[in-house]
């Protein structure tokens, strides 16, 4: 596994995503992209869904990419990657291509949880070998902070504004990681931009697994979440250390938490770090904050039980193949 110094050196030597892109100050997406791509040693080809990353990195006639990169539309990144991967297999079969490519999809939560879910599901079921990375910033940030299926309950967005009769988004977020897991693919994980070594290690395991693999990476969005750009890492650290965003991986159906924050911070502090949840603290609906905290706690306990259940497997010869016998 490369350490962070190695990753930084690789990124500096030949940045897959270079400078000159127009993502916001404090945006978490470049951290996702650079960590993922610096962790892969084969040639890569990237398929990108429409969204912040695509718009900000390929304004014609410029490009921030130094790897093969393809964008077609918003909802079809997994389908496009299916075609690219099938072409690769066909070209390899007839000896028309020698390089050993790794295929990586980058899509936001809008392009993954919502409009791209069908294409993703189809591609997972068909078993195309690619790493699908969802950079999850919990909303449609490119179009001006609208709610998505990944937006947490109570978040203020431009389509779920808080107000006299509203406490922000009324619904809980979708658990995409488990939807993906239901396809029984070999490798599924959650990661975050506050824990880059953890992310890099997961990329390594994901790309060595047979078939499709999926990473749901919590990014962060200063204008969409309402915090100072310099606080990006700290805000996401809160999400992980409070248990709001558990860092986990599911290998061949076996669960494991990869970061165990001790002691866990308060989920309330995570909500308190961002203006999109400000109305939770105005004293109008105190029950809502308590209920959100309870939900997060119950979810943490559920994951801890799954982890305990699968501990033996990771110690078994099957689990040991993944080099995780800690």
């Amino acid at each position: 596994m490369p350490n962070l110094r190695t990753l930084a050196e690789r990124q500096a030597a030949r940045p897959a995503l270079g400078s000159g892109h127009s993502l916001c100050r404090g945006c978490g997406i470049p951290l996702v992209v650079r960590t993922v791509l610096a962790s892969i040693r084969t040639p890569v080809a990237v398929v990108n869904a429409t969204g912040c990353l695509e718009v900000a990195s390929t304004r014609y006639p410029f490009t921030a990419w130094s790897v093969p990169w393809l964008h077609v539309a918003f909802e079809n990144a997994a389908a496009v990657a299916s075609g690219v991967e099938s072409a690769y297999l066909a070209l390899r079969r007839r000896g028309a291509l020698r390089q050993n490519f790794t295929f990586v999809v980058f899509a936001g939560d809008g392009g993954t949880y919502d409009i791209g879910l069908q294409a993703l599901s189809g591609a997972l079921e068909r078993g195309h070998r690619f790493l699908y990375v969802c950079y999850d910033n919990e909303g449609y940030m490119n179009t001006g902070v609208q709610r998505s299926g990944a937006t947490p309950r109570a978040a203020n967005t431009t389509t779920t504004p808080s107000g006299a009769t509203s406490t922000g988004k009324a619904e809980a977020r979708k658990n995409l990681t488990e939807i993906v897991l239901a396809h029984r693919i070999p490798y599924v994980a959650q990661a975050a931009i506050s824990h880059l070594q953890d992310l890099s290690d997961k990329v390594e395991r994901a790309t060595h697994s047979e078939g499709p693999s999926f990473l749901n990476v919590l990014s962060a969005c200063p204008p969409g979440w309402g915090y100072e750009p310099r606080d990006t890492i700290a805000v996401v650290q809160h999400a992980v250390n409070s248990g709001y965003w558990p860092l986990l991986e599911v290998i061949e159906g076996h669960w494991r938490l990869t970061v165990h924050p001790e002691p866990r911070e308060s989920v309330g502090d995570w909500f308190g770090s961002q203006k999109r949840f400000r109305h939770l603290f105005d004293g109008v609906d105190v029950d809502l904050l308590a209920s959100l905290e309870q939900t997060a706690e119950a979810e943490w306990q559920r994951l801890a039980e799954m982890e305990a259940r699968d501990r033996d497997w990771f110690a078994s010869p099957d689990g040991a193949r993944w080099g995780l016998s800690d």
Partner: peptide, 12 residues
């Protein structure tokens, strides 16, 4: 169609 576009541009 998305896969067809991906494959055609990939070189197949």
């Amino acid at each position: 169609m998305s896969a067809a576009v991906g494959a055609a541009l990939a070189g197949a």
